[in-house]
Write a protein that binds this DNA or RNA. Structure first.
Lengths: 138, 138
DNA sequence: TTAATTCCTATTATTTTTATAGGATTATAT
DNA sequence: ATATAATCCTATAAAAATAATAGGAATTAA
């Protein structure tokens, strides 16, 4: 049930951009330094976020990325689903068509419920929520 | 966030044993036939369940396995945690010591909550629940 | 025009997953 | 007793997914 580095780093990128959301573009170099992840790997992950319209980018000198939406409109679930591909606990929930034994599968209702519970929670949390949660501790 | 075949097959084994829980031992050959999984792979997985005390075994001719506890006392969560090793969404929740940046990690509370939500649900469902859920459909 | 940045396509290394193989051991049924 | 059918044990291997790295092209601000 692990979230891969793709999802975790995608979330870190989005959090970092939310923390530095002042209209300026933030370069991957800065994010890489703060989050201790290689620029090259970040490039691959932020590319997904960019194509999906979660961030907007500016090429060239003093370019970088910034959030394409307000931090309180961006759910953690949407970020993780885009970066991980799917959050479904079993492939028959995400693959088209699903399993041919779905009708008789005793465990399928369990996976469906689990999937819904996870999705409900992750869609209920926004980037803003995360920042506020951790700000309380300071 | 996938459950591997180890966890899924472990659950299938337990469900199969619950469905044939009449005091007799059920052989892996029977389970393999019904669930369409190779005997050899089942051996590896049922070994984990056996060591953990989830099933009891009988060697030799007409041997096999049976549930070591009542189906309504056995939670899906316990089966998946034993077979998968851990259900934690990030390693810092399951590895000892965790991450050295835990104090400043903005995402950690999220992972903690997710872990608790998943665990709460999976621990609330027993093998008996699964059988009853699917029996309704018939 | 230079420097800094994103963007793009490959490639590679590592780890995890998903098994399979072969035989030793054990207990039942005949 | 003995053949048979099962679990049990250790090792190996194939495949897939994960986790990056590399090199350079394109772009843009200073």
């Amino acid at each position: 049930m692990r979230i891969s580095t793709k999802g975790r780093y995608a979330l870190k990128i989005m959090i970092d951009l939310a923390q530095h959301d002042d209209g300026e573009y933030v370069s991957l170099k800065e994010i890489a330094g703060r989050q201790d992840i290689s620029i090259k790997y970040l490039e691959a992950i932020v590319g997904i976020l960019n194509k999906a319209g979660f961030v907007s980018s500016q090429r060239g000198k003093s370019g970088g990325y910034r959030l394409a939406m307000a931090a309180d409109k961006c759910t953690v679930g949407s970020i993780l689903k885009i970066s991980e591909g799917s959050l479904a606990p079993v492939s028959c929930l995400s693959d088209e068509g699903g399993c041919d034994k779905a009708g008789e599968c005793v465990s399928l209702p369990l996976w469906r419920n689990l999937d819904r519970i996870v999705d409900d929670y992750l869609e209920s949390v926004t980037l803003k929520d995360l920042l506020e949660m951790s700000a309380v501790d300071e």
